[in-house]
């Protein structure tokens, strides 16, 4: 069939994503479908691309830029996804960009009216990378629905900065830019609270981390890779080979993974 993975996945990523990084910061914008991600993107960049109210409208990753405090930030609007487990082309694009595109900051746009569902993605992102800012969007709707969120407590639970905003009305965007700049320049270093799994998983992950570290050489979070391998995520192996040039499915390494799984 004419459609290959390349039409949607890796080639797009290579051609569109990996930018020439000269003196500017790269910011990825992730979020659930309909969390108002495109609205935040427009508000930050001043672009006026139309944002429809239906899932999947961001098929082509929009790119834009803004300057703040004398720094330039290149913003990439990733497809809206519920998860980073690479079950669909969009999820794989989003995940590959966050892992391999090496953004300086990943902003997760969250629907404040539907926090619990949106936190699932936040938790997955903070497992992948530490430079994360949560933008708690649609605060105006949350207020209308009498939903009150304890923002400092939320930031404490997650271990990353949380900025409340109502992008449609322009609320909270100045502060969001401040926080993005602080994380990008290293003035603020988020320390995400790790998610603790059951003993089985933790033990297996710990053994894998030890085996993975020499191969990954710090380019990816080894614990995260270990967890994905335990899940049996084959697309990640492809990604690692493609972007880092490390073939983790070589016989020697694969045997060790199987050993842990056994």
């Amino acid at each position: 069939m004419g459609l290959t993975n390349q039409a949607t996945g890796f080639r797009t990523l290579r051609e569109n994503f990996l930018p020439a990084r000269t003196g500017s910061y790269l910011v990825a914008l992730a979020g659930n479908p309909n969390a108002g991600k495109s609205t935040v993107f427009n508000a930050l960049t001043g672009l006026r691309q139309h944002t429809g109210n239906w899932p999947g409208k961001t098929v082509l990753q929009a790119r834009g830029r803004f300057t703040h405090q004398g720094h330039t930030f290149n913003l990439v609007d990733l497809p809206g996804t519920y998860s980073l487990l690479a079950n669909s082309a969009e999820e794989q694009v989003a995940r590959d960009f966050i892992c391999f595109g090496r953004p300086d900051v990943t902003v997760v746009v969250v629907d404040a009216t539907c926090l619990e569902r949106n936190l699932n993605l936040v938790l997955q992102v903070i497992e992948t990378t530490t430079a994360v800012v949560v933008c708690l969007n649609l605060m105006d709707e949350a207020r209308r629905k009498n939903i009150v969120i304890d923002v400092p407590l939320l930031a404490g639970e997650l271990g990353v900065p949380v900025v409340p905003a109502a992008a449609r009305k322009g609320e909270g965007l100045g502060r969001l830019k401040d926080v993005i700049a602080a994380v990008a320049t290293g003035a603020m270093r988020p320390v995400p609270t790790p998610i603790i799994y059951d003993d089985d998983i933790e033990a297996a992950a710990a053994r894998l981390v030890g085996q993975l570290q020499p191969h990954l050489k710090g380019r990816l979070n080894a614990r995260w890779v270990a967890l994905r391998l335990l899940e049996g995520d084959a697309t990640l192996l492809q990604g690692i080979q493609q972007f880092l040039g490390v073939d983790l499915s070589e016989p020697g390494i694969k045997l060790q993974v199987k050993e842990v799984l056994a």
């Binding site: 519920y82 998860s83 487990l85 079950n87 669909s88 569902r117 699932n120």
Partner: peptide, 11 residues
């Protein structure tokens, strides 16, 4: 397989 993973992701 994939369907299971999608359903899980929906919560």
């Amino acid at each position: 397989g994939l369907t299971r993973r999608r359903l899980l992701d929906l919560g």
